[in-house]
């Protein structure tokens, strides 16, 4: 399946007709999810601010998922030399970075009313911040290598090194966290979540996933078109 789709032309032919539907699905899920967010009851402790969760938690899930996708795409690009896998990894990076930034910003906005501080050096926040720096490094490396093939290869190596290292960094940050401050921070995963809060969360999570897939497909397609343009221009300049 993956090998079959690795042909850029076939990829475009298969996905270009489906793409608007995925975009439409994302929009519909967002409308439904946002309606559920505002229809859901207030939290007895957190009041209205609990609604930040419906953006924050899906964004944080996406932050990790996109990195995983990037790592897998890099693996295929590096081992099987699929040009499309390189494009997929490159296309996913800025989207993942934005999701991570969104998770950090909404977390900060949520932290102020709840914990009384914009930023808490809590283990989870710190590792998400490191993940964000990772994305920045990946994008910067890609941008600073002119040769497209080499850029793809170098960033794939970086993504795989990062994939191996992220659990270790996560572990070390958790270790540091227990060393420094114990469990002073209120954690949302303490009580089991009520069903009328779970529904909006799940719908929003699906909406985020659909949004990602749509943006990703658009960006991969843009990447394919850019490459084709570059090839054509190079061919013209040789004549």
């Amino acid at each position: 399946m993956i090998t079959w789709l690795a042909n850029p032309e076939r990829f475009t032919r298969v996905f270009a007709p489906i793409r608007p539907y995925i975009g439409g699905l994302a929009a519909a899920l967002f409308v439904w999810g946002l309606y559920l967010c505002f229809a859901s009851p207030e939290d007895y402790q957190q009041g209205d601010t609990v609604r930040i969760m419906y953006l924050h938690v899906p964004a944080a899930w996406m932050a990790m998922m996109v990195y995983l996708i990037m790592g897998i795409a890099s693996f295929f690009g590096l081992i099987f030399r699929h040009a499309l896998a390189d494009a997929a990894a490159k296309a996913a990076a800025p989207i993942g970075a934005v999701f991570t930034a969104l998770a950090l910003i909404t977390g900060s906005l949520w932290g102020k009313p709840m914990w009384g501080t914009w930023w808490e050096w809590d283990g989870r926040m710190t590792s998400v911040l490191v993940l964000f720096l990772f994305y920045i490094g990946y994008i910067a490396l890609h941008a600073s290598i002119d040769d497209e093939v080499r850029a793809a290869k170098s960033t794939a190596i970086l993504a795989l090194v990062g994939l191996v290292n992220l659990p270790i960094i996560k572990f070390s940050v958790d270790w540091w966290n227990t060393l420094h401050q114990g469990t002073s921070v209120v954690r949302m995963d303490g009580p089991t979540i009520a069903p009328d809060m779970l529904w909006p969360l799940l719908v929003m999570a699906l909406a985020f996933k659909a949004l990602f897939v749509w943006l990703w497909l658009v960006r991969i397609d843009a990447e394919i078109i850019t490459r084709r343009y570059r090839t054509l221009r190079a061919r013209l300049s040789f004549q």
């Binding site: 490094g137 970086l158 960094i169």
Partner: peptide, 20 residues
């Protein structure tokens, strides 16, 4: 600058373990 940006996130574990 690029090296610093790429490398410093990976320096997190040894810094944490060493300082800890």
């Amino acid at each position: 600058v690029l090296i610093a940006l790429l490398v410093l996130p990976f320096y997190v574990p040894p810094v944490i373990f060493g300082a800890g």
